[in-house]
C-alpha cells in the first residue's frame, strides 16, 4: 500500500506536465493534479496490483479534465475552438495565425480542440506510445494518428510560423 503511494507521488512531476498541457495554465493544472491525486488516493485500494500506476493516474486526470470541460461548456463560458474553427474556416484561421506572433508551445496546445489536445498531451508532451495513448483514450491507434496529424499542422503553424512555399524555402 505504501509502495503504491510512493509510486503515486513519484508520478506527480509527469502528471503536472501532462495537466499543464491540458489546462494550459499552471494554476489550473495544479488544481487538476490535486483533484486527480485526491481521487486516486480515495480509490487506491481499487488499483490493480499489476496495473501501471502512471496510466491509471493519467486516466483519472484525463477524465476529470474532460468532465470539467463539459461543465464549462454547459455554463457557456467560452466557445470551443472546434466550433470557432468551423465558423471561421481554414483560410480565416490560417490568416489569423499568421498575423499572430509565433506562440509559445503551451499556449498553442491550449488552443487545440479537446480531442487533439489529449493526444498531444499524451504523445508529444508526455512521450507515450501511440498504443498507450490510444488505450488511455479508448480509441483506435489510427484515431490517435489522425488527431496527431491534425494537431501537428496547427501547432507547427502557431509555433514555428508559416512554412515557406516550396520555391522560397529551396535555395
Amino acid at each position: 500500500m505504501d509502495a503504491q503511494r510512493k509510486e503515486l507521488v513519484d508520478c506527480i512531476p509527469r502528471l503536472r506536465r501532462f495537466a499543464l498541457a491540458l489546462a494550459g495554465d499552471q494554476s489550473d493544472a495544479d488544481d487538476l493534479v490535486q483533484a486527480a491525486v485526491e481521487r486516486a488516493l480515495r480509490r487506491l485500494d481499487g488499483f490493480r496490483q499489476d496495473g501501471r500506476m502512471d496510466s491509471w493516474l493519467f486516466k483519472i486526470a484525463q477524465n476529470l479534465w474532460i468532465d470539467g470541460q463539459r461543465a464549462r461548456r454547459r455554463r457557456g463560458r467560452h466557445v470551443e475552438l472546434e466550433f470557432a474553427h468551423d465558423l471561421v474556416g481554414e483560410d480565416g484561421r490560417r490568416a489569423a495565425e499568421q498575423r499572430a506572433a509565433v506562440a509559445d508551445a503551451r499556449a498553442a496546445i491550449a488552443r487545440l480542440p479537446e480531442a487533439q489536445r489529449l493526444v498531444v498531451a499524451y504523445v508529444l508532451v508526455d512521450g507515450q506510445s501511440y498504443r498507450d495513448a490510444a488505450a488511455n483514450l479508448g480509441v483506435p491507434v489510427g484515431t490517435v494518428m489522425s488527431r496527431l496529424a491534425r494537431a501537428r499542422k496547427t501547432l507547427e503553424q502557431a509555433i514555428l510560423g508559416e512554412d515557406g512555399s516550396d520555391d522560397q524555402n529551396q535555395r
Binding site: 509559445d104 508551445a105 508529444l124 509555433i159
Partner: peptide, 9 residues
C-alpha cells in the same frame, strides 16, 4: 515542433 514542446514543458 517536438523540440519546442519539450523545451516549453
Amino acid at each position: 515542433l517536438r523540440q519546442e514542446i519539450d523545451r516549453s514543458f
